[in-house]
Computed example of a mutant assay.
Amino acid sequence: MALFGFFSKEKKESLDKGLEKSKDSFFSKMGKAIAGKSTVDDEVLDELEGILATSDVGVDTIIKIIDRIEARVARDKYLSTSELDKILREEIAGLLAENDDNSATARANDFYVPEQHKPYVILVVGVNGVGKTTTIGKLAYQFKKQGKSVLLGAADTFRAAAVDQIKLWGERVGVPVVSHGMNTDPASVAFDAAKQGQESKVDVVIIDTAGRLHNKVNLMNELTKIKRVVQKFIPEAPHEVLLVLDGSTGQNAFLQAKEFTRATEVTALAITKLDGTAKGGVVIGISDQFNIPVKYIGVGEKMDDLQVFNKMEFVDSLFGK
């Protein structure tokens, strides 16, 4: 039985399927670790610590989780190994709930756009290969499903085929794309996207950016320039800077998050490709460690497989039998 019931049946099934590799890997290792054991003791906790590490939960978060389970063992005196998945689920959910400073849980099925901003401008950043442009296309699709009008800006002008890729997504979803072609000035694309978005009174403008971590100074300068030209039309924009991370890279996703958050002001995270990896625990670590909300997760190839991240449903799918 699920701990929390906010998701639709279809979305919960999609989440369960997307996390299948991570879940199967975890329970396979856990089954071997507790074979022959009847209670949760120091040896079991040591094994659990190692298993969480191989799931890329992250050292600092693992320490918190083990401390919580140790406290519970001390309090309850006796905990059987057959209860371990339930205990783990409850303690991780409790840990993440303590860090929950937004109302995303209450809007678990909703790709929400604040009504006071029109257009609502999202600047999307991330290194090449993380699924950045695909995430933009899926976001556009979800916003359109919500009845919102969407405009895309193809400002990743230096990567081969990036402009063509976002144009294809525009055609697929049925939303307009502002593009100047390859090797053009990204800021000029952003300028025209903001101008057209405001003049057309669209609800959401999503601007793709160059996916290169060439160095922090250049990255910061490029993004600062894009922000400056967008603000000529929409002074408070961008309203959101969304960093896309590849969940299948595990600890590399942590490192990319650190690099980008040092270089620019990131306000939200999207973690992709969770269906192709056994490293789904990285979402727990990132959600716990960064003072930036994980807003979206990608759990499959279909357009509906980009989901608003709900911490409790995620933990329930990953650790619930």
Rank of each mutant, 00 (worst) to 15 (best):
E301Q: 14
N102E: 08
N310S: 09
G285I: 07
I65M: 12
K195T: 07
F111D: 05
D156I: 05
T135I: 04
D192I: 04
V175T: 10
L213C: 08
T224H: 13
D164I: 11
E265W: 03
D185W: 13
G50Y: 04
F254A: 07
E43C: 01
N215D: 15
K9F: 02
V189Y: 14
R75C: 00
S200M: 14
R159F: 10
V73H: 03
V308S: 03
T267H: 12
K145Y: 02
V124L: 12
F254N: 10
N221R: 14
K201I: 00
G211S: 08
Q231F: 07
P176E: 14
F27Q: 08
Q289N: 12
A160E: 09
A194I: 07
D101Y: 09
V57H: 09
F233V: 01
L45R: 12
V175Y: 05
K64G: 01
V189G: 13
A257C: 15
Q142M: 06
M30N: 00
F26A: 08
G153N: 02
D110W: 03
D56P: 04
E20S: 09
K195W: 05
S22M: 02
T134S: 15
V173E: 00
V121M: 10
G211H: 09
V175L: 09
L123I: 06
E259V: 08
V163D: 02
Y141I: 00
I51Q: 01
G129I: 03
L151F: 07
R107S: 14
T39Q: 02
T264V: 15
S8M: 03
K321C: 00
T184I: 08
V125N: 10
S82M: 07
F4N: 11
A268T: 14
G131P: 11
M220F: 00
F111S: 01
T277D: 10
K201P: 00
V173N: 03
L245P: 10
K302R: 09
